[in-house]
Write a protein that binds this DNA or RNA. Structure first.
Length: 818
DNA sequence: AGCACGCCGACT
DNA sequence: GTCGGCGTGCTC
């Protein structure tokens, strides 16, 4: 008898052993996809992890029900890659598999029931049927093939299970498991109103839910969400994320007939029929860069290409892609976010036409499945352009991996698990496939730059902007000074105000950049502008108003707010929290003529609104665009002559050891928006903390200087790239139990890891959906065995979970957190 | 993930 | 007492 260990694509830790029916022996292979029943008669697509002949003890195995053929199997190297990911990021294989297989391929069946074909009305075989049983039969007669939940709904009661069960046993009804074909337009689950409710009705329902607090909360949140987003339905996955993830509450609301989970068909993807054009000729510098990249690839797998904005990195990529596919090999081109880089898709398609496949989260499930199948088949796209999840597609003979904007934090997946880094995973994918890897950025991550400087990666630079585009003029303006002189116009220094006026008078455009601050607030001296930092970690401390204390997000230390400024001894600390809405109001006040628009998260989340706004601005129907981070990326506007950074201090003062690195990047990106062809643009950067070293380093304009200056500190404090970090997050409903558990864990870990253990420290958002969170950070210096370390950590966490303080405790790992 | 089981608090 | 909500554990 043969057995197969199967990975079920759920967040479960273990493998599950199934028996291989004799007719499938030889067909079932490691990496293959199989259909198995798991819990009751629910079916899942699983991945074969191993085949063996050791009968498991302690439970009966169930048979594999079906083997999925037709080119859906994972290759050995694909499976190996997924298992590496699971191991490295301390994520259960099931979780990784769930991320790797498009939803449409993770079929799960809905157990449906119907009347047995051979059953006849009068042929009760002498057995008396109960009233309930007869009612159930009636329902089936009317509705044909339906599932349990529907029987319950139609009969408006929940105790039908016994009757259905009994009917099943008598053979009057039968289970009909329909396993859908993998290609059939797959269905998406949608949460929506069961019917239309009036406000009055909703009020009554909310009142009636007094005893069901979770349901009440969920319903209220849902009503608010619908109002805000002008919608009345939401895919279930999103619903779980945005509204709440209590399945019990959702179920309750469905049973009450308030909401329903409907199954909706989703459509397929389109293809481009664009004319293929010649590649652009490279400039001298680009040609030289390309030559250097080729040279490095002869000896090394990875090359870092650092190119200032508009230096034409993409053109270099295009030439490398062309060479690679000419050799019959595949290319993976990774981007941090597809939405803002439509231009790249266009450029690639202009040269490579239909040889470019695009893969991103905006695609429908079936489209993703189709892409997956195509890549696994005879005629895969030679070039895949996509976001981080593209690493999960099958690759035949990968020759080149390009990771554009490799420093972008959005490469790191946070929720849902697995928490992997798209860049690092892609590097590993490339290595496992013997491909070359090209990392590109204007402001590389310290990790990659360190690798380049140490000689592990090849390093190539592009230092001049392409064409007649000049670098903009940077002006740092001291807000503090004008504030003292009472010369501020709201949030505008006279310098920024005058520059804006000048640009607007010429009919040109302005972008104002206001950093989105997340939840944390920091304290700044109202006299000298100094920002309060932690004494041990060199990150700004987070201010908690209700406790009036300062908390270090990294080492966990707490301290009261000093009454006078520790730097100048004169001013006192004030809370800083600006916002884009206020800036908009001020603009309207000071520039009543100007046409203003705000681009924030709301606009960003709506594709139609976003595109409309960009078009308006491009067409010159808007004069001023106010935005957060997003305006710093990918958007090129001809007529923008001025970029104003409202409050650069908020970039620098994030409670994070990477804050300065990110601030540097953002200032560079923002500057890149100003002044395109011919004319030099201006960037006005308003700062209070004028002495901050980041500004000095930005002014000097040398990335290398910036890196060498800050990397010494990173090394001293044992931060990446000189150490690896593993973050352990504990969650619990009870704050005290959580603290106890965290302290116990930290103590256990310290027994062996000693000073490598930091914390427990409270995260910025200390409570999420009723769960308190706390984090323990492990710093592993170079040379320490990561796999041994992870085993040790996991072992200690398991001990904790099994012990007294493990009740109700949840443990999450984040390897290489950002 | 989703289902059964069991605890606990409200209500006849 | 009993009913129903909500947290916990398990699934081959």
């Amino acid at each position: 008898m043969q057995f197969a260990d199967i990975i079920i694509p759920l967040g479960v830790e273990n493998f599950f052993t199934y028996s291989v029916p004799t007719e499938y022996e030889g067909t079932v292979a490691v990496g293959g996809l199989v259909v198995v029943s798991f819990v009751k008669n629910k079916r899942y697509t699983g991945v074969v992890y191993a085949l063996h002949s050791n009968p498991p003890v302690g439970f009966e195995t169930r048979p594999i029900e079906r083997v999925i053929e037709e080119g859906f199997a994972l290759s050995a190297s694909h499976l190996k890659f997924l298992l590496w990911l699971s191991e490295y990021y301390m994520a259960p294989p099931g979780e990784v598999t769930r991320a790797a297989l498009p939803v449409a391929m993770r079929l799960e069946s809905y157990t449906s029931l119907c009347l047995a074909a051979d059953w006849q009305e009068d042929g009760t075989g002498g057995v008396e049927l109960s009233l309930m049983e007869r009612e159930v039969i009636g329902v089936f007669r009317q509705n044909g093939e339906i599932c349990m939940a529907e029987v319950e709904k139609l009969l408006r009661r929940k105790d039908v299970y016994v009757a259905v069960r009994s009917l099943l046993e008598q053979g009057i009804i039968q289970v009909k498991e329909s396993v859908d074909d993998l290609f059939k337009p797959k269905l998406e689950r949608l949460v929506r109103w069961a019917r239309v409710f009036s406000g009055e009705e909703l009020g009554k329902i909310i009142d009636s839910l007094k005893r069901a607090k979770a349901q009440q909360k969920m319903l209220c949140d849902w009503i608010m969400y619908c109002d805000e987003h002008h919608t009345d339905s939401l895919p279930k996955a999103e619903f779980t994320g945005v509204i709440g993830n209590s399945t019990a509450a959702l179920k309750g609301l469905c049973e009450r007939g308030v909401l329903e989970v409907a199954t909706i068909e989703v459509s397929r993807l389109d293809s481009t029929g664009e004319e293929v054009q010649e590649m652009h000729a490279l400039s001298g510098e680009q040609e030289r860069a390309l030559e250097q990249v080729r040279g490095h690839f002869k000896e090394r797998d990875c090359v870092l290409l650092q190119g200032v904005t508009s230096s034409g990195k993409t053109e270099v990529y295009i030439h490398l892609i062309e060479e690679t596919i000419r050799q019959g090999k595949q290319v993976l081109y990774l981007l941090p976010e597809i939405a803002l880089t439509v231009q790249i898709v266009k450029r690639l398609r202009r040269v490579f036409g239909d040889r470019v496949g695009v893969y991103h989260s905006g695609m429908t499930d079936s489209a993703r499945a189709e892409m997956w199948r195509r890549q696994n088949g005879e005629n895969p796209y030679p070039v895949v352009l996509g976001v981080r999840s593209s690493i999960f597609l099958p690759y035949r003979n990968l020759g080149l991996v390009i990771i554009d904007e490799e420093h972008e934090a959005s490469y790191k997946q946070k929720e849902p698990a697995p928490r992997y880094h798209g860049r690092d995973a892609a590097i590993m994918l490339g290595k496992m496939n013997g491909a070359k890897i090209l990392l590109g950025s204007a402001t590389p991550s310290f990790e990659s730059y360190q690798n380049a400087m140490s000689g592990k990666y090849g390093f190539v630079e592009l230092t001049t902007r392409f064409g007649e585009v000049m670098m903009p003029e940077l002006m740092f303006v001291d807000v503090k000074e004008y504030r003292r002189k009472k010369m501020m116009k709201g949030s505008f220094t006279p310098v920024l105000y005058e520059e804006m006026k000048r640009v607007l008078e010429r009919g040109m455009q302005v972008i104002l950049f206001q950093n989105r601050r997340g939840y944390s607030t920091f304290l700044q001296c109202n006299h000298c502008g100094a920002i309060l930092k932690c004494k041990h970690c060199d990150v700004s401390m987070t201010y908690y108003r209700f406790r009036n204390t300062l908390n270090c997000h990294y080492c966990g230390s707490l301290r009261p707010v000093p009454t006078v400024c520790e730097e100048c001894g004169q001013g006192h600390y004030v809370n800083r929290t600006p916002g884009t809405e206020r800036i908009e109001e001020e603009v309207k006040q000071y520039f009543p003529e100007a046409r203003v628009a705000r681009m924030d998260l709301e606009v960003m989340s709506n594709k139609v609104k976003f595109r409309a706004l960009i078009e308006e601005f491009e067409a010159g129907n808007l004069d001023i665009l106010i935005g957060t981070q997003m305006v710093s990326k990918g958007l090129d506007f001809e007529r923008v002559k001025l970029v104003g950074v409202m409050d650069a201090d908020s970039l620098v003062s994030f409670p994070d050891f990477r804050a300065e690195e990110r601030a540097y990047d953002m200032l560079m990106q923002v500057s890149g928006r100003s002044g395109r062809k011919g004319e030099q643009g201006k960037v006005v950067i308003q700062v209070a903390d004028r002495e901050n070293r980041v500004y000095r380093l930005v002014e000097k304009g040398s990335f290398h200087g910036f890196y060498s200056f800050l990397s010494r500190e990173r090394e001293m404090f044992h931060y990446p790239p000189f150490s690896r970090l593993i973050q352990i997050e504990l969650r619990h409903v009870n704050e005290y139990s959580l603290r106890n558990a965290a302290n116990e864990l930290a103590r256990k870990l310290r027994e062996r890891l000693e000073r490598r253990v930091c914390g427990p420290a409270e995260p910025e958002v200390a409570r999420v959906r009723k769960m308190y969170r706390i984090q323990v950070l492990i710093k592993a210096e170079q040379g320490l065995s990561l796999s041994k370390l992870k085993t040790f950590i996991r072992q200690k966490c398991d001990e904790l979970l099994k012990g007294e303080s493990g009740k109700g405790l949840k443990v999450y790992f984040d390897v290489d957190p950002l």
